[in-house]
């Protein structure tokens, strides 16, 4: 087992590796989506009971929790690549970070949107300035800020570094959101949003929720790699390997 991982850190090698992985991620995404949606709509109870007797609208949980998890996870991964880029000055790391941001922003928006559509029938409001909702909104603005800052600076290397710094500073939001949702002590959590506790969820509901989360994760890989490949080609347009690639494609 002597794989040279650094080989894949070069843009042309990663370009072709990602090209081979994308169909696999799409296949996984679609399979998991079908299983997750089928389970969520046909293998779960229509109405909840116990201390939280919600009606059919609770089914929004399958996309709401998954989107919210992805919004935080993708931000974390984005910051890791941004930090690696700053320290080691690797071209590909910055491109990774830039490729993740739009997908992260989409999932953050979806967490807010699906949360609003769930909040209206259950709590009685689309929106409230609850600490958990507010911090998710701030996370959305962090993604938008990162994308905006990057596009506002013409010099690519400067844009990469400046937006990477912004992303690292914004990382402060992730533990705040995570803590406020997974608040360990009810005595310290005056909020409208319920806490997160996977042990109090019915097995079928939990299965659908976890399957949908995996589906969204695989989707994130596929979408991010697609964006990354375009980004690599754009930035390396002058290089010999891109020219060879174009000639090869032309001959096919």
């Amino acid at each position: 087992m002597n794989v040279n991982w650094f080989k894949f850190a070069s843009p042309p090698a990663f370009y072709s590796l990602a090209g081979r992985l994308i169909p696999i991620f799409w296949g996984l995404t679609l399979t998991l989506l079908v299983i997750g949606l089928y389970w969520g709509f046909f293998q779960t109870t229509d109405q909840l009971g116990g201390s939280n007797p919600q009606k059919e609208y609770y089914r929004i949980i399958f996309i709401h929790v998954s989107s919210a998890w992805m919004s935080m996870w993708l931000y974390f991964v984005m910051v890791v690549w941004a930090a690696i880029g700053l320290v080691f000055n690797t071209r590909l790391s910055f491109m990774m970070a830039k490729a993740i941001a739009p997908t992260g922003a989409v999932f953050t928006f979806l967490a807010l949107w699906t949360g609003a559509f769930w909040g209206r029938p259950s709590w009685g409001t689309y929106w409230d300035w609850d600490p958990r909702l507010t911090s998710e909104l701030v996370l959305f603005f962090m993604y938008i800020g990162y994308i905006a800052l990057h596009s506002a600076i013409d010099d690519i290397r400067r844009a990469d570094r400046a937006s990477a710094l912004l992303a690292i500073v914004g990382l402060v939001m992730v533990p705040v959101i995570f803590w406020s949702i997974n608040c360990p002590d009810p005595n310290q959590c005056a909020a409208l949003h319920q806490r997160s506790n996977l042990t109090k969820i019915d097995g079928n509901i939990l299965f659908a929720m976890l399957t949908m989360s995996l589906a969204f994760w695989m989707y994130s890989f596929a979408a991010t790699f697609m964006r990354l490949r375009s980004l690599i080609l754009t930035r390396e347009a002058e290089s010999i390997w891109v020219r060879e690639l174009l000639t090869q494609r032309g001959e096919q």
Partner: peptide, 14 residues
């Protein structure tokens, strides 16, 4: 506004 908890179970198990 109604607050609810994080228990998601069918009526019979609840």
């Amino acid at each position: 506004l109604a607050k609810h908890d994080e228990e998601y179970v069918p009526p019979e198990v609840a």
